[in-house]
Design a protein around this nucleic acid. Structure first.
Lengths: 232, 232
DNA sequence: GACGGATTAGACAATGGTGTCTAATTTTAC
DNA sequence: GTAAAATTAGACACCATTGTCTAATCCGTC
């Protein structure tokens, strides 16, 4: 309450950056350890050691373990959110090769939001502690998958408007797109195995191809059909 | 080692059933508590209380907490497996209404293997403790999603052979089918909210429809296409 | 009813974690 | 250089949990 965020307004430059360094190093380490051990399995001592910081410093910044946990989740969530919007904003406007564009989009979504450390943290922690912190869980739902879904739905709506996609229910299509993207990863990414760029690329492309067979514009789907029948 | 499974061969009937009752009540309670609290958050006392059993009895059956945990995972996994195969074996042979058949299949898969207590337990626990018990994690991969995927792929191969589906890669199609089934549930089921029969039915149908637009037999997809173009 | 295995409650030491406190030390601002 | 703020190590009380032990009790079998 007193002076945790801005201990003294006179502090400038170094001190503030110094504090910041401690803070991020604490949050970083805490994310690691919480993710590895779960909330109750993670000890403050372990976090302090991993952050190269004394235990007391942690208690100075965050009153108790729970405060730290919530702060970590919020930090990781906002980082993930920023990345998501950065990716969305770079989706190309041209529609001459939708499959490639969507594949590249899926790859970068996977790499930066789903398969990285933050994505793993959020999946694991929200899953294991979500019931204990309903508020947190709700925030995650709305700012995490919720926002992703909404943003994706908007993108699809734009593409459908241009005639590149044929979609009834944009939200449903968004959820299914995300699900398809994850289809191959669910099993692997839980474990934390890093997958090669080739695996990532090919699994994303497979997802996009299936998505386009279901939601691509009629002309594309018709020629796809003709091709498949010829192959018989 | 000595006499944990069958304490004395002379015991018959009641005693044996008595033991069994204790064992299943312990495993049942442990599943509950482990699922709710995670491995390190779950205390033996809590499990004992929920099982209406003394703490010592638990230590008699399972040498230590870890032993109990592994036993619970194995038990839950084998139950889930049994259910899966029971569902698979009832898939109808007639192919006059594939969409309805697949939808019913998806509904029952979801209800009995994914959204029930066992499914939740496996998702949560394997996710949070998988890295601590690689052996367990491997077993889950092969006997859980692995087996489901293989079995599904076999089903699809059968259907493709009959001309009802048009699939290149059966394993991929199986993973994507499972992913689509889960698309709407991921968010809800984490939380443990029970979803209504209507939600379940409609979300399963949506998944199946998308799947069939991508993998349905050409004739169906062509008429689907014509219908959509007429709707414009 | 008596035996024997299973179960029970309760006490117990050992361990490890949380959160507080203090006194010493370092870092930063001026 | 000095003062204020931040950080540190270490000790501390407190509490929960694990796993063991014991003596009493239950319950089916003979």
């Amino acid at each position: 309450m007193k002076s945790r965020k801005q201990p003294a307004a006179k502090n400038t430059g170094h001190t503030q950056r110094g504090q910041c360094v401690k803070r991020v190093s604490i949050v970083e380490a805490a994310a690691e350890v919480f993710c590895r051990e779960g909330f109750s399995g993670a000890s403050i001592d372990e976090i302090a050691a991993e952050a190269c910081v004394s235990r007391q410093t942690i208690y100075n910044h965050y009153r108790e373990k729970e405060t730290l946990f919530v702060a970590v989740v919020e930090e990781v969530m906002s980082r993930a959110n920023a990345r998501l919007f950065s990716i969305l904003s770079t989706f190309p406007d041209s529609d001459d090769n939708l499959e490639d564009d969507l594949t590249a989009f899926a790859v970068s979504l996977t790499r930066n939001c789903i398969c990285n450390q933050d994505g793993k943290f959020l999946r694991k922690l929200v899953q294991s502690e979500g019931e204990r912190y309903p508020h947190l869980f709700e925030t995650w739902r709305q700012h995490g998958p919720g926002k992703t879904g909404t943003a994706l739905a908007a993108l699809f709506s734009r593409l459908a408007h241009k005639g590149a996609l044929q979609i009834d229910d944009f939200d449903l299509a968004a959820r299914q797109f995300l699900a398809l993207i994850n289809a191959d990863l669910q099993i692997i990414s839980l474990f934390g195995e890093a997958l090669t760029d080739e695996q990532l690329e090919s699994s994303s492309r497979a997802a996009v191809q299936t998505f386009l067979r279901a939601y691509g514009k009629p002309a594309t789907r018709r020629s796809q059909l003709a091709l498949e029948e010829a192959n018989l």
